[in-house]
Structure formats: structure tokens, C-alpha cells
Amino acid sequence: MTDPIRWGVLGAANFARNHMAPAIHAARGAELSALATSSEDKAAPFREFAPGLKVHGSYEALLADPEIDAVYVPLPNHLHCEWALKALEAGKHVLVEKPMGLKATDFDPVIAARDRTGLLAAEAFMIVHHPQFRRARELVQGGAIGPLVQVDCVFSFMNRDGENIRNRPETGGGAMGDIGVYALGSARFVTGAEPDAVDHADIVRENGVDVTARIAARFPGFIYSGTVSMRAFPRQYIAFHGEDGVLTLTCPFNAGVFDQAELRLERGAGRVEVERWPGVNQYVLQVEACGHSVRDGAAYPCPLEFSRGTQTMIDMVFAAAEG
């Protein structure tokens, strides 16, 4: 039996506690081994499902631990690239929360360090591991809805907490970095296409942070229309509209939390086909994909080059808004 990959988590973030640390603990071939936090109170919820967890008082101490193989980084956005590079230099594989960088060029030193060390470095873009997105890509690129005409996407939630890192400019907050990654990256993943131009971007800012963005973009052969917002009632969907049908994902981003993962395929003569994936945990699948890449040399489904492409489109959105 192959030894499990021993994971450490840098920081006791709420998202790590509620989603990624339990996913590491549940994933096949993975072991949640260590947490870096100076607060025993923050470590306590992690110990509830991982009682043997080792707690380091600093991020540096965890990276120096020879018993740790891989590191998950859920720190505020502006620290992602810094600690990804430190993890790689310490000889650890690294999975970093999105967005990896705040602009496309931020990815370049991480990609170079990945190539130099031969270690896995990836952005935690978990949705590409979910079977609903793999199925959507297969259907759209396989011609199930004919030539693509338009992609529509909405992703919103309400967050007015001024202390939350998403609402603070100094921590790299903003709707585009937090959820625009999904709205744009999912369209790129399913279609396999890259944008020719962002024709329009209307961005609303509060306290120096983008809280809402309305986007119109052109891809080869189709248009993209999307809205992301941290100041609206929770809503999410993405629809791929072709000449011969429409494919819709009604819970594309927080499957199993916002709603059940469901794909609806509408075609001629009133035919509607529905596929559902109850109980699938995309975070667990993401950890297991890391394991396959590290142990077996399998190609990682979402390499940094793909993530850099999404950030390039985000950069285009900001440039269009300013222009």
C-alpha cells in the first residue's frame, strides 16, 4: 500500500476548517497531518475530526517539518504567491486558494519554481474536478447544443462585513478575485476557448474594493455575458446557449452547499435531459487529483497555465472598466 500524502495547512481560516481540511482528511491517499496556527482555540475545531493533528506555531515551522509532503494555503489573497513560493522552496507540493495572484504576471515566478523543483503547484479551482463540469465540457465541445452562440453566468452573495478580507483592499479583496475566477474560468474550461476582447465592464467599488462587476466579452464564435457581486442575494448559474440547444448548470460553483449539482440539456421537440450528482464532494476530488499527480505523474486537470489564463481575462475586465 502506498503511503498517504501528508498535508499541512497554513492558517486556521474558516474555509479551511469547514471545507478543505475535512476534504483532505476524507480523501483517499491523503492525510491531514499538521496545521500552522498560534491559537489553540482555532486549532480545536480541526482536532475534532483529526485528533492526531500536529500544530505548529508558525508557517515557517510547518514548512520546515520533514514529515509534511504537501501544503494547502488558504491565506488572504495578497499572500498566496509569496507562500506558494516558500512552500516550493521548502520542498513541498502546494495547493493555493484562488486567486493565486492579483494579476497574471504574478503567476510567472510560481510557474518557474514549479518547473525548477518538479513539484506540484496548483490553484484550488475545485469546480473543474466536479463531474458536472466535465460532463458539460464533453457535451458542449462534442456538439450536443450545436455551434455556441452565447454564455450567460451569474454568481452572487451578500457580504457587507467590513472586517472580512473580501472587503479589504489591503488583503487583495474584491468580487472578481473571489468569485469572478469561477464565472470566467468555468466558461473557459467548458468551451476550451479564450476571449478575444472584453467589450464592456461596469465595476462598482466600495472602499477601494470591487463589489459588483457586469461583463460583456467576445470569444471566437460566441459572446459572454456575466455578473458577479458581493452585494446581492445569493444566486448562481451558468448557461451555454447553442444553435441547437441550451445546457444549464443550476448550481455550478457551490455544489452540495448552495444546491444540488444539476445539469439540464434542452434540445428540439421539447426534450429536456437532466443529470444530477448528489453527494459528490468537489473538494475531496481536488485533493485526490493532487495525489494522482504527485504519486502517479498524472497530468493535473487544472495546471497553473489555465489559472493564469483566467487571471488574464480578469485583468482584461479591469482594463475595460478603466478605459
Rank of each mutant, 00 (worst) to 15 (best):
R218Y: 02
P220S: 01
G221A: 02
G221E: 06
F222T: 11
I223G: 15
I223L: 12
I223E: 15
I223T: 14
S225G: 13
S225Y: 07
G226W: 06
G226K: 09
G226Q: 05
T227V: 14
V228L: 03
V228P: 02
S229L: 05
S229D: 05
S229A: 09
R231F: 08
R231M: 13
A232Q: 13
F233A: 08
P234L: 12
P234R: 09
P234W: 11
R235I: 08
R235N: 10
R235Q: 14
Q236A: 08
Q236R: 04
Q236P: 09
Q236L: 05
Q236H: 07
Y237K: 04
Y237A: 09
Y237Q: 12
Y237W: 15
I238N: 07
A239W: 03
A239V: 00
F240C: 04
F240T: 04
F240Y: 14
F240E: 07
H241P: 00
H241W: 00
H241F: 01
H241Y: 02
G242D: 07
G242V: 03
E243L: 09
E243G: 03
E243R: 13
E243Q: 14
D244P: 05
D244R: 14
D244I: 06
D244V: 06
G245Q: 06
G245E: 08
G245W: 02
V246F: 00
V246E: 13
L247Q: 03
L247Y: 00
L247M: 04
T248P: 05
T248W: 09
T248K: 11
T248M: 07
L249N: 13
L249F: 09
L249K: 13
L249Q: 08
L249A: 00
T250D: 03
T250P: 01
T250G: 05
C251M: 01
C251R: 02
C251L: 02
P252A: 06
P252D: 01
F253M: 11
N254C: 07
N254F: 13
N254K: 14
N254S: 14
N254A: 12
A255K: 10
A255M: 14
A255Y: 09
A255L: 08
G256P: 11
G256Q: 14
G256T: 12
G256N: 09
V257L: 12
V257P: 08
V257G: 04
V257I: 15
V257H: 08
F258M: 10
F258D: 09
D259F: 01
D259C: 04
D259R: 05
